[in-house]
């Protein structure tokens, strides 16, 4: 029997080793898998390469993982939060590496990684410092730059509902990077607000089919990042 459910977030992230590459879903606070990130902080893995659109907010979630010194390199489009974090200080001190990727190129690199496409050409960034050193090629009179696919050892993603097969539906704009990160990671670990019976999710509305998901853990009342920050919370 296929059963991708795991009992808790600690078990879900237990085997992530030092040096792993980890895609973390979310755009700002929407879709951020805070409980999985906190479990990863507790677990202690370090020297991580993290792929996320941003660098977190305040002192919880992704920002806390970075502040704890666990991240060797960030791959992101916009390393600024809505509230202050320790990222700028660590970056200026040379303690964290940064790869800046235009947001759509980041998304497409992840999709390509999940789809087995090693590279693609895009007009995004041509003529800017971001394209320097990359292969350029002309198609039908327009210049494009080659971008490589992005894969990862793990993905940490938040969804609304999931079943034992790993089928997922999301909540509103919290979907963002979740579906493509599940595709691009060798092991996609998903926290859902509710695990439902197999067959309960309408096949017409499943956004991520279970083939892209390896583990599902129920976090029934996930924290809301901006509320934690407003309360002055930090982690651990």
């Amino acid at each position: 029997m296929i059963d991708k459910r795991v009992p808790d977030v600690a078990a879900a992230v237990a085997e992530i080793p030092d040096g792993a590459s980890v895609m973390i879903g979310g755009f700002g606070e929407s879709g951020s898998p805070i409980e999985l990130i906190h479990a990863l902080i507790d677990q202690g893995a370090r020297d991580l390469t993290v792929i996320n659109n941003n660098t977190g907010n305040g002192g919880v979630g992704l920002a806390a993982l970075i502040a704890a010194g666990r991240v060797r390199k960030m791959v992101c489009s916009f390393p600024r939060g809505t509230t202050e974090t320790r990222f700028p200080e660590l970056y200026r001190a040379g303690r964290i590496e940064l790869e800046i990727v235009p947001q759509g190129t980041l998304a497409e690199r992840i999709r390509a990684g999940g789809a087995g496409v090693p590279a693609f050409f895009t007009a995004t960034s041509v003529g800017t410092p971001v394209a320097e050193g990359k292969e350029h090629r002309e198609f039908d009179g327009r210049t494009y730059v080659m971008e490589r696919a992005l894969t990862a050892d793990y993905a940490l993603v938040k969804a609304q509902q999931g079943d034992r097969f790993g089928n997922l539906v999301y909540n509103k704009a919290a979907r963002n990077f979740g579906p493509i990160m599940c595709m691009a990671a060798r092991t996609a670990i998903v926290q859902v607000s509710a695990i439902v019976e197999a067959g309960e999710l309408d096949p017409e509305v499943i956004v991520t089919p279970g083939i892209f998901v390896q583990r599902v853990v129920e976090v029934s009342d996930p924290a809301i990042e901006s509320r934690l920050i407003a309360q002055g919370a930090t982690y651990p």
């Binding site: 489009s77 916009f78 390393p79 970056y91 800046i100 235009p102 947001q103 759509g104 960034s125 800017t128």
Partner: peptide
């Protein structure tokens, strides 16, 4: 600290 977001796309 460079930050480009989606503007180039």
């Amino acid at each position: 600290i460079p930050a480009v977001g989606g503007a180039m796309d």
